[in-house]
Nucleic acid binder design. Sequence first.
DNA 1: ATCCTATCCTGGCTGC
DNA 2: TGCAGCCAGGATAGGA
Length: 287
Amino acid sequence: MPELPEVETVVRLVRPRLEGRTIRGAEVSWARTLGGDSPSRFARAVTGARAARVWRRGKYVVIDLERAGRPAGHLTCHLRMTGRLHVEPRGWEPGLYERVCLPLDDGTSLHFLDVRKFGRMCFADRIESALPELGPEPLSPEFTGAWLATALRRRRRMLKPLLLDQAFVAGLGNIYVDEALWSARLHPQASSGRVSRRRAEELRDAICAVLEEAIRREGASFDSFYRTPEGRPGSYQHQFLVYGRTGRPCRRCGAAVARIVVAQRGTHICRRCQRSPRSAAGRIPPA
DNA sequence: ATCCTATCCTGGCTGC
DNA sequence: TGCAGCCAGGATAGGA
């Protein structure tokens, strides 16, 4: 599903086609995509505005709007599971799942497509109200091993649900949390309060490495949904370390990868590399 | 404070 | 082959 690397890929491809363009109108075919806004109010808010800057925060695509060179609100897009953003020329056939279309001044249009209708494209006047509370960007300088060690220790939550919590760290989802925990040899059900400083630093490094490699490969496309805006699938799915590898050998030790459920999410682990909290607690520390 | 469940949706898969 | 039913999955709200 679109997580940080997939959203970053979308931003990089859409940005050059969108920045500088003026929005000519809004055609809304599924109103709930607007997140409670009415189609008419939404259309008034965006029509005539210029897309000044396209950027990413967590899993959100943010489009800063301007009128006469002055800030005029923001469009925030969340792809959830099946959302896609395309900028395409006139005459492009969007198919069955177009939810919002914003015609632009150069004859192209920004299309928001979404099979499952969970995605959102919202307008907000101020950036503070445009985005919910989000934790640090994992690829920013503030996301250090020291920060993560302290933040983990302040809570007593299972690692996986904590890492999935966007208010804790922004941008991680089910795939990359499994990948990072496997890389750092940490069990998804281990308590955050018991992660040592050293293991926290390893986890930080694992998160960054996994995200950077996935961005380099333009994200993962393991089902028919996610595509780069140019229609190509990403290639990170061929790199998965544990995600979706149930029953296949662990890439590190060869033991069969297990699938368990944690926080109502399918979770992939190597039981040999990622010791369960129970057995880890009962283990006699090395002399 | 933390966890769990339901909700939103639909395509695709499983099993009969 | 056809069809009903189940499942995934990000975020959020509400209950335990």
